[in-house]
Amino acid sequence: MLILTRKAGESIKIGDDVTIEVLSMSGSSVKIGIDAPKSINILRKELYDIIKNENINASTVSLDDISGLNKLNELNELNNFDNFNKLNELNGIKNLNVLSSDKNKKI
């Protein structure tokens, strides 16, 4: 780990696109400003870790999960999804290649 000492008003460059500036210090807190491209996620580490871990948990999808969600409908757990056609037609999900459940068939 590279360790640098900076005073308020001083900066650190990371590559060409990222600048980190120490804005002020108050007690044990440091206020920093970050200038970076919009495509870079800048988050507090604790929030980043929570979301990353949740994404990883969510990505372990099994066929049982999918058939379970299908079963919810058979059990009348879900009201009819009125927004489905709207998403398909008005909002363009159809254009996002929503596929029929027939294998290898494109709609």
Partner: peptide
């Protein structure tokens, strides 16, 4: 987040007949 190297995805349907959300 957590999948920084993967940029391309598509939407697939779980079950078109059942209008699931």
């Amino acid at each position: 987040l957590g999948f920084n190297d993967l940029k391309k995805y598509c939407i697939l349907n779980i079950n078109k007949e059942k209008n699931l959300p």
